[in-house]
């Protein structure tokens, strides 16, 4: 265990090193900072960025929108997923709606949201529409996948219905829900930044990406991109942490 985890860390570190070196060599070969800034230049821009007064409000605005969209889709996905999982009628009633939402291209959703909502709200609405079907689908799958033999056992031993729901259904759904939440979190930051680029709220990573692009400040584009990657990584890590915390039994 110990040696293998050290090995993993070493391999990961080596991989990242190769990535940075390749990036650096490519940047040198191209020789145009406008097309591809070097890692060192990107790092310099990042330091300027992080130490500037405007940095945290921008990052927090984007994280806030992402979390808001995520939490609303989580709540809605769980509630409607439970309803659809337990009632066939509700499932077929919701199916066309979910299919439409799921199949709509992200860009169509963003453009329509820009037409209908004010720019601060657009990223939240878009995230909600993209994430909701993922969470919903996983909750429904979790209920469909419940172990029928355990259910039969609980009924035969006359366990109360609310206990069956809380102690049998919920733990069975949980891995599906967490897998859905993890996928949704990964997509959330990509979607939210795309929506910010198009809707241009006053504060937002997407807004700043677009400004940097207009200014031909490619190093800044890279810097903001690294910030987005770090945010995505941190939240993915948090969800994994929750996952291992909750799953102590397998």
């Amino acid at each position: 265990m110990e040696t293998s985890s050290i090995k993993t860390i070493l391999v990961t570190a080596a991989s990242i090193l190769v990535m940075v070196i390749t990036w650096h060599l490519l940047a040198l070969m191209l020789g145009h900072e406008y097309i591809l800034p070097t890692p060192a230049e990107t790092a310099r821009q990042m330091i300027i960025l992080v130490s500037s007064a405007g940095f945290w409000p921008v990052v927090l605005a984007t994280i806030g929108r992402g979390l808001l969209g995520f939490i609303i889709s989580l709540g809605l996905g769980v509630i409607l997923g439970l309803v659809a999982g337990f009632s066939k009628a509700a499932y077929w009633l919701l199916q066309p709606w979910v299919t439409v939402v799921r199949s709509t291209p992200v860009m169509s959703v963003i453009i329509l949201a820009i037409i209908w909502f004010e720019s601060n709200l657009v990223p939240v609405v878009v995230t909600l529409l993209i994430l909701f079907p993922i969470i919903y689908g996983n909750v429904v799958a979790g209920i469909m996948n419940i172990n029928k033999e355990l259910l039969e056992m609980a009924r035969m031993y006359k366990v109360k219905t609310w206990r069956i729901v809380t102690e049998l259904y919920l733990p069975s759904i949980l891995p599906f829900l967490l897998a859905g939440a993890s996928t949704a979190m990964g997509i959330a930051w990509k979607v939210i930044i795309a929506a910010e680029i198009l809707s241009q709220p006053q504060l937002g990573i997407g807004t700043n990406l677009m400004i940097a692009k207009i200014d031909f400040a490619t190093a800044q584009v890279f810097a903001w991109t690294v910030v987005a990657i770090v945010i995505s990584f941190v939240f993915e890590y948090l969800i994994r942490l929750i996952e291992t915390r909750l799953n102590t039994w397998s």
């Binding site: 033999e149 355990l150 039969e152 056992m153 609980a154 031993y157 366990v159």
Partner: peptide, 27 residues
């Protein structure tokens, strides 16, 4: 009142041994 013993053990994987027994005794 009837107890059952199935071909499969039918234990809840997320409950400990004692909590599995407790599950059918509660209430």
């Amino acid at each position: 009142n009837i107890s059952y013993l199935f071909q499969e053990h039918r234990l809840l994987p997320w409950k400990t041994v004692e909590d599995n027994i407790d599950f059918v005794l509660k209430d």
